[in-house]
Amino acid sequence: MTTFKLIINGKTLKGEITIEAVDAAEAEKIFKQYANDNGIDGEWTYDDATKTFTVTE
């Protein structure tokens, strides 16, 4: 398992979430479901060097 981080730069929600996932594809699926569940819709980026996803509304 690898640790992945999501940085949320939303209009109403900001913060960071860290999860353990098998790979970046699994982490992205989990993070996008979390964002969808919380009404966050924005532009996604991923930095493989730091294993960090960012979503900006």
Score class of each variant (00 low, 15 high):
10 G>L: 12
25 A>I: 02
47 D>W: 06
16 E>F: 04
27 A>N: 00
43 E>M: 11
31 F>N: 00
24 A>D: 08
13 L>M: 13
41 D>P: 11
3 T>Y: 15
39 G>E: 11
16 E>K: 04
19 I>D: 06
17 I>Y: 07
27 A>F: 00
34 Y>C: 01
11 K>H: 03
15 G>P: 11
47 D>P: 00
48 D>G: 10
2 T>E: 13
4 F>I: 03
54 T>F: 01
22 V>M: 08
32 K>Y: 06
55 V>Y: 07
26 E>S: 13
9 N>H: 12
40 I>G: 02
34 Y>T: 08
8 I>L: 08
15 G>E: 07
24 A>L: 09
2 T>P: 07
21 A>E: 02
1 M>L: 11
5 K>S: 09
27 A>H: 00
34 Y>K: 14
44 W>G: 00
13 L>Y: 12
17 I>K: 12
23 D>L: 04
12 T>G: 12
42 G>M: 04
28 E>N: 10
56 T>H: 10
22 V>C: 03
7 I>W: 15
25 A>R: 04
10 G>A: 14
42 G>C: 01
44 W>S: 01
10 G>Y: 13
11 K>W: 03
12 T>D: 11
23 D>M: 02
13 L>W: 12
21 A>D: 06
39 G>M: 15
57 E>T: 14
45 T>S: 12
40 I>Y: 14
41 D>H: 14
50 T>H: 07
5 K>Y: 05
41 D>F: 08
30 I>K: 10
20 E>T: 04
13 L>Q: 14
22 V>L: 06
31 F>V: 14
20 E>M: 05
22 V>R: 04
6 L>N: 01
40 I>H: 14
36 N>H: 14
54 T>E: 12
34 Y>I: 10
10 G>N: 14
38 N>E: 10
44 W>H: 01
27 A>W: 00
1 M>H: 15
33 Q>R: 09
2 T>V: 15
23 D>E: 11
46 Y>H: 05
56 T>C: 03
14 K>R: 04
33 Q>C: 02
53 F>W: 13
37 D>W: 15
30 I>W: 13
6 L>Y: 01
55 V>E: 00
12 T>I: 11
48 D>C: 12
28 E>P: 00
37 D>I: 13
55 V>I: 10
44 W>I: 15
54 T>Y: 12
9 N>R: 09
50 T>D: 06
28 E>L: 12
37 D>S: 15
